[in-house]
Each structure stands twice: as structure tokens, then as C-alpha cells.
């Protein structure tokens, strides 16, 4: 950094700092390697949002890790968790990930009706996931394992509930985009939005890997 003549200009690794690209033409700067377009910044921005969301989940995971074994003489994960149900839930989310991938592939081909079909299938898998989670929560609360019962249950409901809320909002976003695509077709704006939702959806599946491993499977082990 110290050896460069103008460190402030050195936005891109490998680019000579002496070339004053931004003053010439902002788009030329982003297209320098032939792989960027002005709209590309949306994807990077959305990725940064996902990373900040990842930090929220990291804080919730840390909370669960710290207080997850404080049962307050109440039920422990072993008493509460139903692993076959969690396995079913996990498969719902995994199926929804691959069907969203199929929607993206059809979007590449420009096949509007098939995009809509795969998006609808993804939404149904998402709804099944949220439905199963709500059933589980209802069952737990019915058994007296409410969020107020112990620190473990507070942390559990906060972590899993936050993930479920993300999936629910993802479904709302999905339905909105289906309406948008229905009305305006696969215009560049809608493609960009669908790509953002794709990242969001796959990101939630990544978080769920942490949830089912760390909360459910490890919980039943201890």
C-alpha cells in the first residue's frame, strides 16, 4: 500500500494505480475485465447484505452455543426434538433449492412458463418447510416447552424462528416476483431480482445446514 503512488485509486487488485479510470468513464472501470456490467453492483450489494445477515445468524448461533444447555430443570433437546421431522424439513428446503436452480436455468433459456412453474414448486416446498416448522413449534409449546421455559428454549426459538421468518419473507418475495414476471415477462430487471432471490434462497439453505447440525443433531447427542 505504501509503495503505491495513489493508494486511493487502487480499487482493483492488479490494476496499475497510475491509470485514472474512474474519471474517464465509470462503466469502463467496471467492465475492465470484460466480466462486469453496471448492474453487477446490485449482485455485489446483495451479497454484502447476505453477509451482514450471516452475522445476525452468527450472533444467534453464539447465543445458542452459550446458553443452549441451560435447561432450568426443563426439557432438554433429547426430550423434545423429533429427528425424522427435522429430516423431512431439511429435505423440503433442499428440494426447494434445486427447484429454484431449475427456475434459474429456465430463465437462462427464456422460457417464461417453465420459470413460473419451477418458482411455484419452490414456493410450495418453502411453504411445506414453514408449515412443518410451525407444526413443530406448536407441538413444543403445547408440551409446555415455550420460549419462556428456559434459556435453551429462548435461544432455540429465536434462532430457528429467525430462520423461519427469513424463509417466510422469501416466499412473500417469491410470490411478488411471480406476479412481476407474469405482468412484465423476463425483462432484465426481473432477471436481476430473480437472481437476488436465488442468492437469498440458497443462503437460507446454507444457514439451515448449521441449524440442523448444530441445534438438532448435536442437541440430541448431548
Amino acid at each position: 500500500m505504501a509503495t503505491h503512488a495513489s493508494p486511493a485509486m487502487n480499487f482493483e487488485p492488479g490494476r496499475s494505480p497510475s491509470v485514472a479510470i474512474p474519471q474517464v468513464d465509470p462503466t469502463a472501470f467496471y467492465d475492465a475485465k470484460g466480466e462486469h456490467h453496471p448492474e453487477g453492483s446490485t449482485m455485489l450489494g446483495f451479497w454484502l447484505y447476505l453477509m451482514s445477515d450471516c452475522l445476525i445468524f452468527a450472533a444467534l448461533f453464539a447465543t445458542y452455543a452459550v446458553v443452549g444447555r441451560n435447561y432450568a430443570a426443563g426439557p432438554s433437546p433429547k426430550d423434545l426434538f423429533d429427528l425424522p421431522l427435522v429430516a423431512l424439513n431439511t429435505s423440503m428446503l433442499l428440494f426447494s433449492s434445486i427447484t429454484y436452480g431449475f427456475a434459474m436455468l429456465e430463465m437462462e433459456k427464456g422460457d417464461l412458463s417453465r420459470v413460473q412453474i419451477w418458482l411455484a414448486v419452490t414456493g410450495l416446498f418453502g411453504l411445506a418447510f414453514v408449515g412443518l416448522e410451525l407444526y413443530e413449534f406448536h407441538h413444543l409449546i403445547h408440551e409446555g416447552a415455550t420460549p419462556q421455559r428456559s434459556a435453551f428454549l429462548s435461544a432455540f426459538f429465536t434462532l430457528v424462528g429467525t430462520h423461519g421468518l427469513h424463509v417466510s419473507l422469501g416466499i412473500v418475495w417469491l410470490v411478488t416476483l411471480m406476479a412481476q414476471v407474469h405482468k412484465r415477462g423476463l425483462v432484465p430487471e426481473n432477471k436481476r431480482r430473480l437472481l437476488c432471490l436465488s442468492m437469498f434462497w440458497h443462503f437460507l439453505d446454507v444457514i439451515w445446514i448449521g441449524v440442523f447440525t448444530f441445534v438438532y443433531l448435536m442437541g440430541v447427542l448431548q
Binding site: 456490467h37 453487477g40 446490485t42 433442499l94 434445486i98 436452480g101 434459474m104 436481476r192 437472481l195 442468492m199
Partner: peptide
């Protein structure tokens, strides 16, 4: 191809391998 982003696309094979 004029896509709106750098590299957010996969092939059918990519998705199936991942799945």
C-alpha cells in the same frame, strides 16, 4: 452473453452435482 452479473449462473450439471 450480456448477463446482469459476473458469475451467478450454473449449469444443469452443476445444480445436480450440488444436489
Amino acid at each position: 452473453h450480456g448477463h446482469a452479473d459476473g458469475a451467478s449462473h450454473g449449469t444443469f450439471k452443476d445444480y445436480m452435482t450440488g444436489f
